[in-house]
Design a protein around this nucleic acid. Structure first.
Length: 486
RNA sequence: GCCCCAUCGUCUAGCGGCCUAGGACAUUGGCCUUUCACGCCAAAGGCACGGGUUCAAAUCCCGUUGGGGGCGCCA
């Protein structure tokens, strides 16, 4: 039987990095086994589910490159792929359970359920519902009342009082003792299924073979296994991936900074960097490789190598990895991806950007060496574009300028540039070398002075390349205003 | 009460002898460079604790402690 896995998010917000990792593991597992990856939207919570969230989810997944074989916008034989469109299936299945005496209707109100629970707690008994406890509410009056109010009775599943166990592909054997939980609701009074019920029906009817999901669902598995058994169907394999925690060891949340895929995208992270980082957060390559393309992850993916302990999200490592990817990526792509960041900062207009592609490309290329995300590119580009007041009073600069031969060399360079319209990296270098030969400055003070005068900074990329990028006109201006004072 | 987890600050390798515990990020030092960064080299840093089992334990078992999850007509 071929492998079928699914990623089943609820459309109630942005795609969280934890969800992204779960999706990734499902994807890798599917590809590794030539299986099918399905995307299912779990929107049975009508209060919180939104179409916008669903769109954002799809966009984030697409951006990450985790394409699915079946899903809401892709044809498939197991659809529909939105739970809200599958209500007829849940109804059918529920009738079956009721007819077989494995589930029952109840006309209780939520408040009454609370009361039962409180009463049990007071008596020191576990807060478990049962048919005996619920049956007294099924009076004829109550049924009429529900009908008048347009309410449907909730459906409870009769939880067998026996132990259940699974052999989790990541956690190993997990056993839930007898009577760990009581009967639970599978159909709500609004006619929609509850989570634990819908997943089982969907996974069952979609013939999902492996359920790879977050650790937080581990205890739900008990209910789900009981349901599979009630339907007399084979239980799928389970693999529970541990949670992603914040730096303080608590569940990763907004307090910890960026947590959604969209935020990382907006901050200038490359999708392949995020994917690579997420893959390593819990899984490891058999030979310890860290930077690797998706196909290599697929080739080597194995649930055996997924760690069962929770992982803390380490932004520093992600940044490093993103920097590596930015440096190794195709230059034209980086230029293209940097564009919005550059425009947003107001460094260039759309026209300037497009009309000076060659210049921009060259500039982005030398600047990408030192960034860890795309948003830092415009910051680094500033020295080539923005003008400034030279801080001639700067103590450090003064010292450098006063060193032997420095000012003379700069004057000579000014003259040479003035008389040489040719503006190539090689000629710039030639002019500098010649000036140095004539005036014989001390090297370091000279270079530092020149850099400071031209870029207003003592640090930055290769000076000659920088000079070339600043452009002849601007270089001349910047030299002139200094030389004029000597 | 129930379930899961526990190796450097962080992500991890390790699945009874190859461990004097390996790699990566971060940190520190050095090299490279006119400078910063990149890159390269090196250093520091860890098996939570206590009992067993075994000739031998980071690895297996039990307990303690610590962390996380769950106990919804949320997913």
């Amino acid at each position: 039987m071929s492998v079928r896995v699914r990623f089943a998010p609820s459309p109630t917000g942005f795609l969280h990095v934890g969800g992204a990792r779960t999706a990734l593991y499902n994807y890798l597992f599917a590809k590794k086994h030539d299986g099918v990856f399905v995307l299912r939207i779990e929107d049975t919570d009508i209060e919180r589910s939104t179409k916008e969230s669903e769109n954002q989810l799809i966009e984030a997944l697409t951006w990450l490159g985790l394409d699915w074989d079946e899903g809401p916008n892709v044809k498939g034989e197991y659809g529909p792929y939105r739970q809200s469109e599958r209500t007829y299936i849940y109804k059918q299945m529920t009738e079956k359970l009721i007819n077989e005496g494995k589930a029952y209707y109840s006309y209780v109100y939520p408040e009454e359920l609370e009361e039962i629970k409180e009463k049990l707690a007071k008596e020191g008994k576990p807060p478990h519902y049962s048919y005996e406890l619920l049956e007294p509410y099924n009076t004829e009056e109550r049924k009429k009342e529900f009908e008048e109010k347009g309410l449907k009775p909730v459906v409870f599943f009769k939880m067998p009082r026996k132990p259940f166990s699974i052999n989790d592909l990541i956690k190993g054997p997990v056993t839930f003792g007898e009577g760990a939980i009581g009967d639970f609701i599978i159909m709500r009074s609004n006619g929609l299924p509850t989570y634990n019920y819908a997943v089982v029906i969907d996974d069952m009817t979609m013939e999902i073979t492996h359920v790879i999901r977050g650790d937080d669902h581990l205890s739900n598995t008990l209910r789900q296994v009981a349901l599979y058994e009630a339907f007399g169907v084979k239980v799928p394999e389970f693999a529970h991936v541990s949670m992603i925690l914040g730096p303080d060891g608590k569940k990763l949340s907004k307090r910890h900074g960026a947590t959604s895929v969209e935020e990382f995208r907006n901050k200038g992270y490359l999708p392949e960097a995020l994917v690579n980082y997420l893959a390593l957060l819990g899984w490891s390559h058999p030979e310890g490789k860290e930077i690797m393309p998706l196909n290599e992850m697929i080739e080597n993916f194995d649930l055996n190598r997924v760690n069962s302990s929770p992982a803390i999200f380490d932004n520093e490592k992600l940044k490093w990895m993103n920097g590596v990817y930015i440096r190794n990526a195709n230059l034209d792509r980086i230029v293209k991806l940097s564009k919005p960041f550059i425009l947003e900062k107001g460094l260039l207009t759309e026209e300037q950007f497009e009309n000076n592609k060659k210049w921009v490309t060259e500039a982005v290329d030398i600047v990408r060496e030192s960034v860890e995300d795309l948003s830092q590119i415009p910051d680094k580009l500033e020295i080539f574009l923005n003008d400034f007041e030279v801080e001639l009073e700067n103590e450090e600069l003064k010292e450098f300028l006063d060193a032997e031969g420095v000012k003379n060399t700069i004057k000579l360079i000014h003259e040479k540039v003035l008389n040489d319209p040719d503006w190539k990296v090689e000629t710039i270098l030639k002019n500098i070398k010649e000036a140095m030969k004539e005036a014989k400055p001390k090297k370091k003070p000279f270079y530092m002075s020149l850099r400071k005068i031209l870029t207003n900074s003592f640090e930055g990329p290769d000076l000659v390349k920088t000079i070339h990028l600043i452009g002849r006109t601007r270089v001349l201006q910047r030299l002139e205003r200094v030389v004029a004072k000597w």
